[in-house]
């Protein structure tokens, strides 16, 4: 039937895609404690369950957002409590190799190699993420196209603007088609039009991926997220839809939009002492 070097047609859905999942939540934490540095407990007794969708992680600086995302990326070990990712315990001392292949992670400080081209960098990351060799070129091309950098793919990264570098960071995070996608402040450095595009991409990814986006911009949450997680001092303050968050605020609370008023209402509850800022 076949002639010489024909490509074998690949089916659109692999066995792994069709297999039923063995977990109820992509991310599940109970009483999670994670240390930042030697002493400070940045995440302190957090209970959280996240499924498919876009989850906005909100909170003031120092609330433990970055530490939580690092723990979810398995680069920080929990100091207490349990953390289950895709049904697998992320505590323990193993390297979580199989689990990490299904996680995409963009750190807050996204470091890159200035002399690499966009394609080389994303390809290098695909290699680090153990994407099968035969699939690397296509996966890289797809990731680069999704963040709208196909026309700059062969330029060196030092020639890119800050917003474009950020998009390369998102491309490397999605190159392995992750089931859990962790983005720490992905909108930093993007101009308004790029932020709109990113929100669309997030909504698109959120249909079949568990996306966790940390941000301190409340309007990002309103536009892109199906779910808001509000953290303060390492604990969960609120989890619900953006509408629930808006409903929590009244006219007496600080803020220019319903969401901002809800945010300040939940963070400055009675009995809390805070500085002027």
């Amino acid at each position: 039937m076949t002639t010489g070097k024909e490509h074998r047609m690949t089916s659109a859905a692999s066995a792994a895609d069709l297999a039923p999942t063995a977990y109820a939540w992509e991310i599940r934490a109970t009483g999670l404690k994670v240390r930042a540095g030697r002493r400070r407990m940045a995440v302190d007794g957090l209970d959280l369950a996240l499924g498919t969708g876009v989850h906005g992680l909100l909170g003031p600086n120092g609330a433990g957002k970055t530490t939580l995302i690092r723990a979810l990326a398995t680069v920080l070990r929990p100091a207490g409590g349990t953390l289950e990712l895709l049904g697998e315990s992320a505590g323990g001392r193993s390297g979580h190799r199989a689990l990490r292949r299904r996680i995409g992670y963009l750190p807050q400080e996204f470091g890159y190699y200035r002399r690499f081209t966009v394609r080389e960098f994303v390809e290098y990351m695909a290699w680090l993420k153990e994407v099968p060799k035969a699939e690397v070129p296509a996966a890289v091309q797809r990731a680069v196209e999704r963040v709208g950098l196909a026309d700059r793919a062969d330029e060196r990264m030092k020639a890119l603007s800050g917003g474009m570098v950020r998009r390369v960071g998102i491309a490397q995070a999605i190159v392995n088609d992750p089931v859990i996608l962790l983005l720490d402040e992905p909108t930093a450095g993007l101009d308004p039009a790029q932020r709109l595009r990113l929100r669309k991409l997030l909504q698109e990814l959120g249909t079949d991926t568990c996306v966790v986006v940390s941000t301190h911009l409340v309007e990002d949450v309103a536009a892109a997220c199906t779910d808001v997680v509000l953290l303060d001092e390492g604990r969960l303050v609120f989890q619900g839809t953006p509408d629930d968050l808006a409903a929590a605020g009244g006219p007496g609370h600080m803020g220019d939009s319903p969401l901002e008023r809800g945010y300040s209402a939940l963070l400055r509850g009675p009995g809390r002492e805070r500085g002027a800022w």
Binding site: V75, A98, P107, G111, E130
Partner: peptide
């Protein structure tokens, strides 16, 4: 510069 990314990868 890509230390944190490298450490978070499966191949780390």
């Amino acid at each position: 510069p890509a230390y944190e990314l490298t450490v978070s990868a499966p191949r780390a």
